[in-house]
Computed example of a mutant assay.
Amino acid sequence: MNNKSVLFITQAAVIAAIYVVLTHIANTLGLANQAIQVRFSEALTILPYFTPAAIPGLFVGCIIANITTGCMPLDTVFGSIATLLGALGTYYIAHGLKKPTDPGFYPSNKVKTWLSPVPPILANTIIVPFVIKYVYGSEGTIPFFMLTVGIGEIISCFVLGMILLFALNKRKDAIFYGQ
C-alpha cells in the first residue's frame, strides 16, 4: 500500500469518526432525528469539495451514526445513500465539471463553490421524507416532510457547511495534503 492510499484511508476514517461524533452531539440535543433534522455532521458534506476521501468517509460515518443512534435499518440504508449521493454530487460540482469549448456555459469557481452544498440538500430533501413517512410511520405528508427536512438540510449543509468550507479553504493545502 502506497502513501497516497494510506492518506486517503486515514482521511476517510477521520471524516467518518467526526461525522459520528457530531451526529451523536446533535442527537443528544434532540436535533438529529426529528422532522427538522439539524445534524451538525451534515455540514461535513461540503468536504468532497476538498478531497475525494470525504465520499467514503461520509457514507461510512452516516451508516455508523445511524446504527449507533438507534435508527431503523431502512433509515440507515436510505439515509446513508442520500448522504453518499450528496457527497458524490458535491465532488462532481467541485471537480467533475469539465470546461467546454464555449467558456460562456462553464460555471466560475465562485459559482461552483456556492453550488457545492446543493447536492446533499437535494438528496436528503428527496429521500429522507419517504423514510420518515414509511419507515417510521410519522403523521404528515411527503411535501410537509420535504419542507421540514429541506429546512434542516439548508441549516446544516448550506449555512454550517459554507462556514466550514470558507474556514477550511484558508488551510486546505495543509489539511488535505496530498490531494
Rank of each mutant, 00 (worst) to 15 (best):
Val149Ile: 09
Lys170Val: 13
Gly161Lys: 05
Tyr177His: 14
Glu153Gln: 14
Ser138Lys: 15
Leu168Cys: 02
Ile163Gly: 09
Asp173Tyr: 12
Gly178Cys: 06
Phe145Trp: 12
Ile163Asn: 10
Gln179Ile: 13
Val149Leu: 03
Gly178Tyr: 04
Gly178His: 03
Glu139Leu: 12
Ile175Asp: 12
Ile154Val: 12
Met162Trp: 07
Gly150Thr: 00
Leu165Ser: 12
Ile154Arg: 03
Ser156Trp: 10
Thr148Ala: 02
Glu153His: 06
Gly150Trp: 07
Cys157His: 06
Gly150Met: 01
Met162Asn: 05
Ile163Ser: 10
Lys170Glu: 13
Gly150Ile: 00
Gly152Phe: 07
Val159Ser: 04
Gly161Tyr: 00
Phe144Asp: 05
Pro143Leu: 01
Gln179Asp: 15
Arg171Ala: 15
Asp173Pro: 04
Met146Trp: 04
Leu168Asp: 06
Tyr177Gln: 15
Leu160Val: 11
Met162Lys: 01
Leu168Gly: 07
Pro143Asp: 03
Leu164His: 07
Phe158Asp: 11
Phe144Glu: 10
Gly161Val: 02
Glu153Met: 15
Ile142Arg: 01
Phe166Asp: 10
Phe145His: 06
Lys172Tyr: 04
Glu139Arg: 00
Ala174Arg: 10
Lys172Ser: 07
Ile175Cys: 09
Ile151Lys: 04
Ile154Ala: 14
Cys157Trp: 05
Ala174Gly: 10
Lys170Pro: 00
Pro143Lys: 01
Leu164Pro: 08
Gln179Met: 10
Gly161Asp: 07
Val159Lys: 04
Asn169Thr: 12
Gln179Tyr: 12
Ala167Trp: 05
Phe166Tyr: 14
Ile154Pro: 06
Tyr177Val: 13
Phe158His: 11
Leu164Lys: 09
Leu164Gly: 05
Ser138Ile: 05
Gly161Thr: 01
Ser138Ala: 15
Ile175Pro: 06
Gly178Ser: 09
Phe166Ala: 06
Thr141Lys: 12
Met162Ser: 07
